[in-house]
Simulated scan of single mutants.
Amino acid sequence: MSRLELRHMRKAFGGLEVLADISLRVDASEFVSILGPSGAGKSTLFQLLTGAEHGEGEMFFDGAPLDDHGRHFAFMPQRDALMPWRRILDNTTLGLEVQGLGRKAARTRVAPLFAEFGLAGFERHFPAQLSGGMRQRAALLRTVVQERDMLLLDEPFGALDALTRAAMQRWLEQMWRHHRWTALLIT
C-alpha cells in the first residue's frame, strides 16, 4: 500500500486549468521529486495536500481518504520563513510549540539534532547571523522535528546560489538516506 496516493486530481483557477488529471503514488520512505517550470501547478499540488485549496479527484493517505491534512504533513516553504527576532533554537521549536508542546519539551526534542544538521554552536544566533544554507538547514530541522508522516518540500533551495544549492541537495540526500523520511519535493 502506498503512503500517499492521488487519483485524477484537477484544479482550476477561474477558467485556467492548473492541474489536469494528475495521479501520483508515493511509498513509505520514498523521496519523490516533481519537476516543472514556473506556473505548472507544482505548488498548487501542495496546497491541495495541505488543505489550503480544494480541487477535484481523490487523495488517500495510508489507504484512507485524506481528510485531516494537518496531521500527516510537515511543510517547508520556498523561503526559510525564520522569524528574525527569534534565535535559531526558538525558530526550530516553533512548529512543536504551535502544536502545543511546551517550550522546554520542544527544546529537549530539537537539541540533539543541531549537530546532525550542521548547526551546533549556532543555537543562540539570530537568522541574520547565518548563511543561506544554514538558514535552510534550520528551516528543515524545524520541519522534520515535527515527526509528521511525510515531508512536503516546496523548492527549499531555490533562493540559494548554485554552489550552495548543489551542496544542500547532496546534504539532503545524505540526511534522507540516514533517516528514510517519506518526502515529496517540488523544484
Score class of each variant (00 low, 15 high):
residue 158 G to V: 08
residue 80 D to E: 10
residue 86 R to M: 14
residue 133 G to I: 05
residue 163 L to R: 10
residue 151 L to Y: 09
residue 65 P to A: 07
residue 119 L to C: 03
residue 121 G to F: 12
residue 14 G to S: 11
residue 170 R to Y: 01
residue 104 K to R: 15
residue 62 D to Q: 14
residue 76 M to R: 05
residue 132 G to A: 06
residue 57 G to T: 04
residue 154 D to K: 06
residue 114 F to Y: 13
residue 172 L to S: 02
residue 70 G to R: 11
residue 61 F to K: 02
residue 78 Q to H: 01
residue 176 W to V: 06
residue 80 D to N: 03
residue 83 M to R: 06
residue 73 F to D: 10
residue 14 G to W: 11
residue 95 G to Q: 07
residue 35 L to G: 03
residue 58 E to S: 13
residue 178 H to W: 05
residue 143 T to D: 02
residue 124 R to D: 15
residue 165 R to H: 08
residue 156 P to I: 11
residue 102 G to V: 09
residue 5 E to A: 11
residue 155 E to W: 08
residue 67 D to S: 13
residue 51 G to T: 03
residue 146 Q to L: 15
residue 68 D to I: 05
residue 144 V to I: 15
residue 103 R to E: 14
residue 140 L to S: 09
residue 157 F to K: 01
residue 185 L to P: 02
residue 97 E to I: 10
residue 4 L to E: 00
residue 177 R to H: 13
residue 24 L to I: 13
residue 143 T to C: 13
residue 81 A to P: 06
residue 93 T to L: 06
residue 173 E to A: 15
residue 174 Q to Y: 05
residue 153 L to S: 09
residue 40 A to W: 00
residue 81 A to S: 13
residue 85 W to K: 06
residue 129 Q to M: 12
residue 98 V to S: 07
residue 111 A to D: 13
residue 55 G to H: 06
residue 121 G to H: 11
residue 122 F to W: 15
residue 110 V to G: 08
residue 158 G to N: 02
residue 117 F to T: 01
residue 150 M to G: 05
residue 119 L to Q: 09
residue 182 T to V: 11
residue 152 L to M: 09
residue 73 F to M: 04
residue 88 I to W: 09
residue 19 L to N: 02
residue 20 A to E: 12
residue 61 F to L: 14
residue 93 T to M: 11
residue 117 F to V: 09
residue 112 P to E: 07
residue 162 A to P: 12
residue 88 I to T: 10
residue 122 F to L: 15
residue 155 E to V: 00
residue 49 L to K: 01
residue 46 F to C: 05
residue 167 A to I: 04
residue 15 G to S: 10
residue 45 L to H: 04
residue 100 G to P: 10
residue 102 G to C: 09
residue 130 L to A: 05
residue 121 G to Q: 12
residue 84 P to H: 09
residue 26 V to C: 10
residue 77 P to R: 00
residue 120 A to H: 10
residue 166 A to C: 06
residue 31 F to M: 14
residue 159 A to Y: 03
residue 34 I to W: 03
residue 45 L to P: 00
residue 130 L to W: 09
residue 73 F to G: 07
residue 2 S to A: 14
residue 1 M to K: 11
residue 117 F to R: 06
residue 108 T to K: 14
residue 57 G to C: 04
residue 60 F to K: 01
residue 171 W to M: 06
residue 186 I to F: 05
residue 85 W to Y: 10
residue 144 V to S: 07
residue 58 E to R: 12
residue 26 V to S: 00
residue 6 L to D: 06
residue 158 G to K: 08
